[in-house]
Structure formats: structure tokens, C-alpha cells
């Protein structure tokens, strides 16, 4: 079979997502280096990132609860493939570490980068702390990454 004509196709579009009330407050809190979760009035689970509805109890969430910017590393992986940062278009080369972090006061875990990339230095249960960007802009990458405390 001869090699067929391959047609390259590139999509370029911009979307403007409404943050919603929960993410708006979350983003505004980030501007003050503060993190809040939303708590379900039925099961009392504290959700982070905040969202408007408890999927388990099927009730709207209206209560806010403060959480710390420190917590526990519940899972981690060191990724060896490059990824493109969707916001900047800049490629982040591997290795980089991604974690699931349970901030003190939250019941769910938060995805974020972990500064340490040596697998031998990472373990579940480690205490980690948010490292904030100097110039805040009200987005999740106001937290640059989490650093290991111990």
C-alpha cells in the first residue's frame, strides 16, 4: 500500500468559562493566600476544590470551611514525559512530580505539583506545604507547587 496523503489539522480556539460562585470565591481567596473548602450539610464532607453540589448526598453546598495550606501527601507519581502547560503553551519537561494532597481540614485531596522529583525522597504520609507565587492572580497556579516538609 502506498502511503496516503496525511492532512495536518490544528485546532485553535478560546473559551471563556464562567467560574461559578464556588470557584469565584476560591480564586479570590487565593489572592489572599487563603484556601477554603465547601462542606456538605448532610455528610459533612469538606470538598476541595470547592463545587456547588455534593454528588453523594445530592444536595447543594453552601457552607464554607477554612483549610490549611499544609497537609499530607496521599499519593504521588514522578512523570518522565513532557507535558504542555495549557495556560502558557510552554512545555514542562520531565521528570516532574504530581501529588494528591489532603490539606489539613479537607476530606478530599487536591491535585498539584510536588517540588521533589526524586522518588526515593517521596512517600505517602509526608507533610507538605504550599509554595505561593509572589504575584498572585487568583488561579490555582498561584500555588507554584507543594514542598516536602520532612
Amino acid at each position: 500500500m502506498t502511503r496516503p496523503v496525511i492532512i495536518s489539522h490544528e485546532m485553535d480556539a478560546t473559551w471563556r468559562y464562567a467560574s461559578g460562585v464556588a470557584m469565584e470565591r476560591f480564586a479570590n481567596n487565593l489572592l489572599e493566600r487563603r484556601i477554603e473548602a465547601m462542606q456538605c450539610g448532610e455528610c459533612k464532607r469538606r470538598y476541595l476544590p470547592p463545587r456547588p453540589f455534593c454528588g453523594n448526598c445530592r444536595v447543594p453546598l453552601t457552607d464554607w470551611a477554612p483549610v490549611a495550606s499544609e497537609g499530607v501527601l496521599e499519593a504521588w507519581t514522578v512523570v518522565y514525559l513532557p507535558i504542555v502547560d495549557n495556560r502558557t503553551g510552554i512545555t514542562r519537561d520531565g521528570p516532574y512530580a504530581m501529588g494528591l494532597i489532603r490539606l489539613d481540614g479537607a476530606d478530599t485531596t487536591l491535585n498539584h505539583y510536588v517540588a521533589e522529583t526524586d522518588p526515593a525522597c517521596l512517600k505517602v504520609g509526608q507533610r507538605v506545604k504550599a509554595v505561593w507565587r509572589e504575584e498572585l492572580r487568583g488561579a490555582i497556579d498561584d500555588i507554584l507547587h507543594f514542598e516536602v516538609l520532612e
Partner: peptide, 29 residues
């Protein structure tokens, strides 16, 4: 990556492969 929450997760650049790694890591811990 485009199948994930646009505000919180897409901006981190995380994808299904990384999620598989996190799940395997949690199981292996």
C-alpha cells in the same frame, strides 16, 4: 487533558496517564 475540569485541572496540565500513575502509586504505597 481536555476531558478534565477546565478551571482547576486543565491549568495544571495533568492527563489520564498521570492519573494512572497516581492510582498505581497509591496501590503500591
Amino acid at each position: 487533558k481536555w476531558a478534565l475540569d477546565p478551571i482547576f485541572l486543565q491549568s495544571l496540565g495533568i492527563d489520564f496517564l498521570t492519573f494512572a500513575g497516581l492510582q498505581a502509586a497509591a496501590m503500591a504505597a
